[in-house]
Design a protein around this nucleic acid. Structure first.
Lengths: 150, 150
DNA sequence: TATTGTTATACTCTATAACTATA
DNA sequence: TATAGTTATAGAGTATAACAATA
């Protein structure tokens, strides 16, 4: 994408949803343009992150945490396992479930990805004061409905 | 999607980009689930909206306003023209440009879509005070870089 | 040379529907 | 009956690369 900054058009400027989509697009583009060739996507990184923090977690649990569909989660899991970053193991407790675990390559990839996310966050947060960051997260949370862990 | 509300997982909860993606996803889903069968997508509606407000506008100008690539804009334009909501006319002034205009069906579709957007905005904004709405837009604008029209 | 549109191509994300195995 | 995973399928959005026509 050319890095042109254009004015928000009148009319659409009053639509909150429009600003959310634009902001999301800007974040999406910056991440891909800056780190796209060296790390997994943001969504894939989120999945690796959750599996790393919760070894043996099931697909359906990740889908709930990331607020995506079961079939969507399936597709992402397939991509990650095809690339040998993650593996499915049958749960000995509930044989309907697949326990997810990172491979060694997955651990390495997540390490690099976490560094990319950290750099990306610096870029993103640099335009806000700490108070504004807290405020923004608080407002966004009211949209997506996720509760902070206590 | 099942309408489960799950806790934001620890670790990821500190990532601002994660909250933006989650909020965007929630907005995207609500719009599609509520109006997906009767109106164009949010992005397509944005394009129809801009063409309606700026008859004869070019693809590249819309791409700049919506902050998307030329080829992406091409794909969206194709979809809209294939569905007879919009048409390309060669500009008599600059023959490299295609002047975009809504068809009669496009005008009708946009009318319905605008009503859907309005209802969707009520749903979205209902969780904020007017002051918070202004604050949120102001913060999001710092991310996507679009300037308000004066 | 630069801009606009175009085509070809590819990948990610999203979801619905229906089916299998298990609880 | 309900849950987890799966497969098949489809559509939207995103982009890069290269080319043609025009300015």
């Amino acid at each position: 994408m050319p890095d042109t900054v254009a004015d928000v058009p009148p009319g659409l400027d009053d639509i909150l949803g429009f600003h959310i989509r634009l902001a999301h697009g800007a974040v999406y583009r910056h991440f891909n343009e800056t780190f796209g060739t060296i790390v997994p996507t943001q969504k894939q990184t989120s999945v690796l992150w959750l599996v790393s923090d919760n070894p043996g977690i099931s697909q359906i649990d990740i889908a709930r945490l990331l607020q995506i569909d079961r079939a969507t989660m399936m597709a992402i899991t397939n991509t990650l396992t095809d690339r040998n970053l993650m593996e499915r193991r049958t749960s000995p407790i509930d044989r309907r479930r697949q326990a997810l675990h990172l491979t060694a390559a997955g651990v390495t990839s997540l390490t690099v990805a976490r560094a990319a996310v950290a750099a990306h966050e610096v870029w993103l947060k640099s335009r806000f004061t700490p108070e504004e960051q807290v405020q923004l997260v608080s407002l966004l949370r009211r949209i997506h409905g996720g509760q902070a862990d206590q």
